[in-house]
């Protein structure tokens, strides 16, 4: 009933999509970091109306399951983009938009909401006097950001960010619902081809397991490296 050799054959097939999955995950991580930093910055300004809107949007994103958001954006985003592009004179067929774009947009927005909290926490941990000290040393704002704030915030936010990466890789398993082929979707396809779903999914689980272990290990290494001189 359960055939180990099929598991190994499935692993060989599934491993082919690991680079693409990781590529999507890193892209989403980078976008969500940028968007999350922007949100954190915007929130720290306390601009009246925008602040309240941000709170509602973040509450909505965190209150709805990823899968619902994914479907919502999958069915609305292409039309919104097509509509927006038609104003500047570019015709785009909404049905021709690649679902990969939808997946990346969805999860970037979704995890930006979480990432902004992580960045906010890391900013709080930063000693405010250092900013004042750098000002008194005549650093420009950009220099303060680059030499004082970012290195420390990065070290502070790294563990949570790597955790987010793992969450993104896992969340990408939902992409199969909108026909994007990641590790899970590939396992589904392999299983459908050989009629041995359990073996294929076991193979996928093993791959996820190794990825998770590798990311945890890498995080520890990088964390030690970033924290050198502080501990």
């Amino acid at each position: 009933m359960f055939d180990i050799s099929v598991v190994f054959e499935s692993i060989v097939e599934i491993i082919k999509v690991v680079p693409f999955t990781l590529f999507m995950a890193f892209l989403i991580l980078i976008f969500s970091l940028i968007l999350g930093s922007f949100i954190a910055w915007l929130e720290s300004k306390y601009i009246p109306v925008i602040h309240q809107i941000l709170i509602v949007i973040k509450s909505f994103i965190r209150g709805t399951p990823n899968v619902v958001l994914l479907f919502l954006i999958y069915y609305s985003f292409p039309f919104v983009v097509a509509e927006a592009l038609s104003y500047i004179g570019i015709e785009l067929n909404p049905y021709s938009l690649n679902p990969v774009v939808v997946v990346i947009v969805t999860f970037s927005v979704c995890y930006a909401a979480f990432q902004s909290e992580i960045i906010k926490g890391a900013l709080h941990a930063l000693d405010k006097h250092q900013v004042e000290a750098s000002q008194s040393l005549g650093y420009s704002q950009w220099q303060t950001l680059r030499k004082v704030i970012i290195p420390q915030v990065m070290a502070e936010a790294l563990p949570d960010t790597m955790n987010t990466l793992l969450l993104i890789i896992k969340a990408l398993s939902l992409a199969f619902l909108v026909t994007v082929v990641d590790i899970f979707a590939q396992a589904n396809l392999v299983g459908a081809m050989t009629f041995s779903y359990l073996e294929a999914f076991t193979a996928a689980a093993l791959i996820y397991w190794v990825l998770g272990g590798a990311i945890t290990y890498a995080t520890k290494k990088v964390e030690n490296h970033l924290n050198r001189g502080y501990v």
């Binding site: 793992l166 896992k170 969340a171 398993s173 939902l174 899970f184 396992a187 589904n188 779903y197 359990l198 999914f201 076991t202 996928a204 689980a205 996820y208 397991w209 990825l211 998770g212 272990g213």
Partner: peptide, 19 residues
Amino acid sequence: LSFTRSAPILLQLFIFYFG
């Protein structure tokens, strides 16, 4: 613990369903 942490819940659902 490391298994449940690293495998997506969707995958775990299918493994249970077929397993």
